[in-house]
């Protein structure tokens, strides 16, 4: 046995444990400068920060879409290593929602949902389809299951993308600026779905600029800047009484445009 697994998974063990993660891009850019983060089961952690602060890069290291050079990340008891089988195993447990939806345009909505569970989890197709329809009902687009993604609005597409991740029954969901590519009137419907998920106890890490969402839903807010974690605090404290000068400046900027 070569994979590294925690002895017993109890509710006390953290879902994500990232220690001193450092990343350099091949061009030498130091994207992450020793970032720590611990996410407990059922927590909703919101990561904020100006663009280029490394928050998306950091999020993407959790399911090995980005590699890192130093530090360690442990997801659901599995230590991220260079073991390809472990990377596959982690990706099955971690759902990811992208800014650009990344739905598969050549497949129908239903096929988008059933593809991975059937191929990866080897589950019977009929059973997966039933579950997929239930999920589509849950995100409020049950009647669109035979349409192609190109026929849906942006908000509908992002809800399909969330349902697609959920269909793999992940233990944790990562959201990479899920509402940034949406028209303002569609942001609400997506956030609504995310609120529902949080209420159901899903562990979530969300990179977003949505202050209201962070205030209401997050258990903790993390501010990143220049590849470092600047501040980490419960939302109430973060938004009303930040300790760092950098956080105050960021909040001033973001609250002007997003009161």
């Amino acid at each position: 046995m070569t994979s590294s697994v925690s002895p017993a998974r109890t509710d006390a063990a953290p879902m994500i444990e990232a220690c001193a993660v450092q990343k350099w891009y091949p061009n030498g850019f130091h994207a992450l400068r020793g970032v720590d983060l611990t996410v407990q089961r059922g927590e909703v952690v919101v990561i904020m920060g100006p663009s280029g602060s490394g928050k998306s890069t950091f999020l993407r290291t959790f399911n090995a879409l980005e590699d890192f050079q130093q530090g360690s990340i442990c997801v659901d008891g599995i230590v991220l290593s260079d073991d390809l089988r472990q990377i596959d195993a982690i990706r099955q447990e971690v759902g990811m929602v992208f800014q650009q939806f990344n739905l598969f345009p050549h497949l129908t909505v239903l096929e988008n949902l059933t593809l991975a569970p059937v191929l990866v989890r080897k589950r019977p197709k009929a059973e997966v389809e039933q579950q997929a329809r239930a999920l589509l009902r849950r995100v409020g687009i049950a009647e669109q299951s035979d349409k192609y993604p190109g026929q849906l609005s942006g908000g509908q597409q992002q809800r399909v993308a969330i349902a697609r991740s959920l269909c793999m029954e992940p233990r944790i969901m990562l959201f990479d600026e899920p509402t940034s590519a949406l028209d303002p009137e569609m942001v609400r419907e997506v956030l609504e779905v995310m609120r529902g998920l949080a209420a159901d106890g899903m562990t979530m890490v969300v990179v977003t600029h949505e202050v209201h969402f962070a205030r209401e839903v997050a258990t903790r807010v993390v501010l990143m800047a220049d590849g470092e974690k600047v501040e980490e605090a419960p939302p109430e404290q973060f938004f009303t009484n930040p300790t760092q000068e950098r956080s105050k400046r960021f909040l001033d900027q973001i609250l002007i445009s997003n009161p």
Partner: peptide, 13 residues
């Protein structure tokens, strides 16, 4: 788009 491969990989394919 590159995101297609990333989405597929992050679903565990």
């Amino acid at each position: 788009p590159r995101g297609q491969l990333e989405a597929a990989r992050s679903l565990g394919l």
